[in-house]
Amino acid sequence: MTSRAFVYILRAVERGAFPKSRKWAWKRLYNILSRTWRDSDWRFMNYGYMPAGDAFALTAEDEPERAFIGLYHQAMAGLPVEGARVLEVGSGRGGGARYIARYMAPAAVTGLDYSPETVRRARQLNADTPNLTFEVGDAEALPFADASFDIVVNIESSHCYANVPAFAREVARVLAPGGCFTWADMRASTMIEGLDRDLGASGLVLESETNLSPGVVSALDAVDERKMSRIQKTAMMRRFLKEFSGAKGSILYGTLKSGAVVYLARRYHKPLA
């Protein structure tokens, strides 16, 4: 039953059906997860990324999160982060924003999430990082002034939004001229044309696109045992959590591996004039 329901949800997302209802449902789901999944060693909710031969330095404390941090490492690599004002939209439990704040010397990092419970959890988990703050807010109506940030990050979050073009326009608004928007998320292969239109609504200039799918599958393989060990401790929704988390044998794992779903990374910049 859970698998059939999950297939129905995926097909509804692909058709663009019920956008406001889906947005409300995602918010409810993340509120529930943040109340029930309270482990202090889980700062991430993404699928991860582990490309072959891509090594980067981490402290012993952060090494267990390498697979998840990989999505943020690829998103920020080569960008002028030092001294920059960074915004992460859809910051979840805060692990990615924390990685940027602790390793890349930005002036400040702001994490924004639609789920109040998740923001509360992120503040608790990342209180040891002084140049990092978290706020509750809507990706489609960002609560920031024009040109407030030099870099906007959005990792594995935009599939939850009701209006991606509105989000893209908001990103362009809060970016300073010359700023960068770095994005990564999954879409069914049939949705890529629509994605081009949605993100293109920003007026930002596309610089690059990378298919991350093989490295994402590698990350899912690497963390599967740890993930399933935690899911087995959950009293309810085990089958749903297996599907939701992309565990081996799940529908999303299979579609990522087959190419029916593609995990993409893109970078855009805002022209100086």
Rank of each mutant, 00 (worst) to 15 (best):
A222C: 03
V223P: 00
V223F: 00
D224G: 01
D224E: 10
D224L: 00
E225H: 02
R226E: 09
R226P: 00
K227G: 02
K227N: 07
M228W: 05
M228R: 14
M228G: 01
M228P: 00
S229V: 04
R230G: 02
R230M: 08
Q232V: 00
Q232E: 14
Q232G: 04
K233R: 12
T234R: 07
A235T: 10
A235C: 07
A235Y: 06
M236W: 11
M236R: 14
M236D: 12
M237A: 15
M237G: 10
R238E: 08
R239N: 14
F240N: 02
F240D: 06
F240C: 06
F240A: 11
L241H: 06
K242I: 03
K242L: 08
E243H: 07
E243P: 12
E243N: 07
F244D: 05
S245G: 08
S245F: 13
S245I: 11
S245T: 06
S245M: 12
G246C: 04
A247H: 07
A247E: 08
A247P: 01
K248C: 06
K248L: 06
G249I: 11
G249T: 09
G249F: 09
G249C: 13
S250P: 13
L252V: 15
Y253G: 09
Y253N: 13
G254D: 13
T255L: 15
T255N: 05
L256W: 10
L256G: 04
K257Q: 15
S258P: 03
S258T: 14
V261D: 01
V261C: 03
V262D: 01
V262R: 13
V262M: 09
Y263A: 15
